[in-house]
Nucleic acid binder design. Sequence first.
DNA 1: GTATATATTGCAATAATTTGCAGTATTAAA
DNA 2: TTTAATACTGCAAATTATTGCAATATATAC
Lengths: 257, 257
Amino acid sequence: MQKAERITMLKEERFQVILNQLGQDQKVLLSGLSDILKVSEDTVRRDIKELADQGLLKSVRGGAVPHAPGPHNFKDRVEYGNDQKKVIANKALRFLKDGQVVIFDGGTSAMLIAQALPKDIRLTVVTNSFPIASILEEHDKVEVLFAGGRLLKSSFVTIGHETIQYFKKFRADICFFGICSIHSELGVTGPDYEESEVKRAMVESSREVIALSTIEKLGTAEAYYICPTNQLTTIVTDQPDDMSDFNIYKEMGIRMV
Amino acid sequence: MQKAERITMLKEERFQVILNQLGQDQKVLLSGLSDILKVSEDTVRRDIKELADQGLLKSVRGGAVPHAPGPHNFKDRVEYGNDQKKVIANKALRFLKDGQVVIFDGGTSAMLIAQALPKDIRLTVVTNSFPIASILEEHDKVEVLFAGGRLLKSSFVTIGHETIQYFKKFRADICFFGICSIHSELGVTGPDYEESEVKRAMVESSREVIALSTIEKLGTAEAYYICPTNQLTTIVTDQPDDMSDFNIYKEMGIRMV
DNA sequence: GTATATATTGCAATAATTTGCAGTATTAAA
DNA sequence: TTTAATACTGCAAATTATTGCAATATATAC
């Protein structure tokens, strides 16, 4: 510690820088951050560990990678791609019918669907997302079944073994699935291990699986496997459904919207 | 305090300056504020602590950063100002130690305890209450395990078989127990069937059971049985502990506070 | 008005946290 | 296996936080 310098940077500022950097590059290196922040690599390592404990990123050897898709501050994420996602959410709505049992995952796309739900629809909703449960408070005819588990404070969803077990008990009509990577051969994949595990359980408990995706996520893959692509029954995107890329999926019996 | 100078700056003025500065720079330093406000760093620190208690900012080492509220609003629904209950909540706090596993029930009393928790306490909290989970968002060292089940929208707690099963898996150190009726012979009872079932599971999973009660609930009973009175280890009330009524319970080995 | 209680503030001593560094263990790659 | 990089551990120095206390200011009662 150099008394002479007195560069006063709060730990929280470093956190902010790290998360920003991470949102921008999808990865950060200890060496790079140490350089930018003018602190030792040890300190960066400790910072990353702390952020990882909060579930805001994932610590890996030599640096860190994002824990959740897209931007990493929840508040930002809600607004991110809002219009685009709203379009998708409204398209997805038409698949819902009165009396169905529906699983919502914890992503922001599913939140937008929940927000777009008519106030008087009658549903049973199974979810692991606090925000979604909160949104559904005003829907008198919607029964909410909430999956228990360890609370991930960054996104306010529950994860872990308990959560998975909870979903496995159901046989839902529809599962709405936040934006993941979809690849015709590699299947549906996600960037986070635990979340992907939960999503797999959701898929396996649903008769119909509707994946919400943006065009740039189609044909890409990430680290953690969720399910084979042909387990999806519908893919909802914001693009017109006459694109050539879609044929691969259509041939697998998946409806494109 | 300099008598010669007589610069009388009210505490509220300092608060205003601090908050302005914070809004402008997204951070404030103790050193900087001490300089601007012409008061010692200790005073600034105390000011920041007070503002943090009001939730207007977040106190961090060396200064403060803006308070970032999450995407949920359960916290706001907490009814403030029940002084009687606040007194009880503060009395109950002293039983908590770092590292313990604690069960909180869904009542408002337990909520007040959660609110009174020091921000840096290290705990594992098991609960079925959304508001409590929400309150604990800011407690970085508190791990929240949430019990799944059917969501009761009126009070935002989960209930039912699943919830009970979840609690049964734990062996907690302490269970905090909202205000129920306590009768020396009829036991602890509650007004709602399902909630009482859940509470019974909570009690059975805890080594120590601390019941919060007001004096008028002692010696009364309600429709649904929860547990025998002697299963309680402590009863916390807002009354001085020398009342004759207390002896009945003391003789059962229950500590009265 | 005075006197007493209450709250605020600064100061000093002590406790806790943060940070960098050095040494050691562990991991990944050649 | 060997080698280089990364991670972990303990420790010391610097910084910050907490606590008790005394001095002063403010409020309240008399």
